[in-house]
Computed example of a mutant assay.
Amino acid sequence: MKVRKFVSGLSVMLVMACASVQAKSILDLIPTVGQGSQQGSRQSSLSQGEALSLYSPGQQQNSFDDCSDKFPQTRPISLANVPAKMKPMALCSDNFAVLYSQTSKTPLVVVERLNSQLLQDAKGEERTNAFYPDPRIPKGARAELSDYRGSNLDRGHQAPAADAPDQKAMAQSFALSNMIPQDPDNNRKIWSKVEKDVRKFSQRAGGNVFVFTGPLFDAGFQTIGENKVWVPTRIFKLVYDESSQRAWAYVLENGNMPIQKPMDYQTFVETTGMKLLGDLPVSGSVGRLSSI
């Protein structure tokens, strides 16, 4: 059986590889998802009109032109390098960019540019909890709120709500195009700790820190809902500190598993097949791979 690999040059490419590669990529990583309480069963939503009004005309286009600054060296991911069968879309928001798949009905990669000033602005912003299907994506090619209902899985942010520097960015973070079906214990405990560690580092960094977050799917991955939203088997978060040129990553199972130490960038590439930093200089990792 052949396995797809998610690769990039700062562009992202999916290529075919042997099943002997230990940890593959967009179609290939992890076990069954655990059980947990449904996140936010009483939470409000936005109407499609209200949701669309959150986005500027430029952000309503299938293009990264309006958010190229979210990528290192303003070099966005190229949709031309993603297989047509994944039906990719480029979605811009104020605080992050999403490479979205109309096939998986999930993001493939979400990219943020963090720095101390942005995170200072984000402190104290009230969490809205108003989830909504992204109105920029056609019906049938997107996740709906009903897909998560009764799944026992959370709607897990890829660009965290806590990174949002204002209320508009906060509201945009609750689009389902920024969500994956996530094990509740993983989302609320393990992954929350990873997100906090990345924020802590980014607040101390001397400049911009670029964060790539996304799902990985093992052969045999599950789906939820009428729209068959793909359930990730693993989740990754790759961090690149522009000033120091250090890079490290987490690749964690989508379950209630002990948190693992971050890995260096080369190990991340070898483990996942994803060369998301392309030819950017990488001069080291984080400490001796202890917790941030």
Score class of each variant (00 low, 15 high):
residue 223 T to G: 12
residue 152 N to H: 15
residue 158 Q to R: 14
residue 142 R to G: 00
residue 205 A to T: 14
residue 125 E to K: 15
residue 213 T to H: 02
residue 217 F to M: 14
residue 220 G to P: 15
residue 157 H to M: 08
residue 113 R to C: 10
residue 184 P to V: 06
residue 201 F to Y: 15
residue 153 L to V: 00
residue 169 A to I: 11
residue 146 S to G: 11
residue 105 K to A: 08
residue 141 A to F: 05
residue 129 N to I: 02
residue 227 N to Q: 15
residue 174 F to G: 02
residue 195 E to S: 13
residue 123 K to D: 15
residue 211 V to Y: 03
residue 161 A to I: 00
residue 112 E to M: 10
residue 183 D to M: 05
residue 199 R to D: 13
residue 175 A to R: 04
residue 224 I to Y: 01
residue 181 P to Y: 05
residue 215 P to R: 11
residue 189 K to H: 13
residue 173 S to Y: 11
residue 205 A to E: 07
residue 132 Y to K: 07
residue 169 A to K: 10
residue 164 A to F: 04
residue 160 P to A: 14
residue 109 V to M: 15
residue 220 G to Y: 13
residue 207 G to S: 09
residue 159 A to R: 07
residue 170 M to E: 01
residue 156 G to C: 01
residue 180 I to V: 13
residue 127 R to D: 03
residue 233 T to K: 13
residue 195 E to K: 02
residue 183 D to A: 06
residue 113 R to L: 06
residue 170 M to F: 07
residue 181 P to L: 02
residue 218 D to H: 14
residue 152 N to Y: 04
residue 199 R to W: 01
residue 219 A to F: 10
residue 131 F to N: 01
residue 223 T to L: 15
residue 208 N to K: 08
residue 203 Q to F: 11
residue 206 G to I: 01
residue 154 D to Q: 11
residue 168 K to N: 12
residue 188 R to G: 03
residue 117 Q to M: 07
residue 110 V to T: 11
residue 122 A to D: 04
residue 154 D to W: 02
residue 162 A to V: 11
residue 121 D to H: 14
residue 127 R to M: 02
residue 130 A to P: 00
residue 188 R to W: 00
residue 179 M to W: 00
residue 118 L to V: 12
residue 226 E to G: 05
residue 130 A to W: 06
residue 222 Q to M: 12
residue 121 D to Y: 10
residue 230 W to K: 06
residue 147 D to P: 12
residue 195 E to D: 08
residue 117 Q to D: 15
residue 135 P to E: 08
residue 167 Q to K: 14
residue 219 A to T: 08
residue 139 K to C: 05
residue 141 A to H: 11
residue 108 L to W: 04
residue 210 F to H: 08
residue 206 G to V: 00
residue 116 S to Y: 12
residue 141 A to E: 13
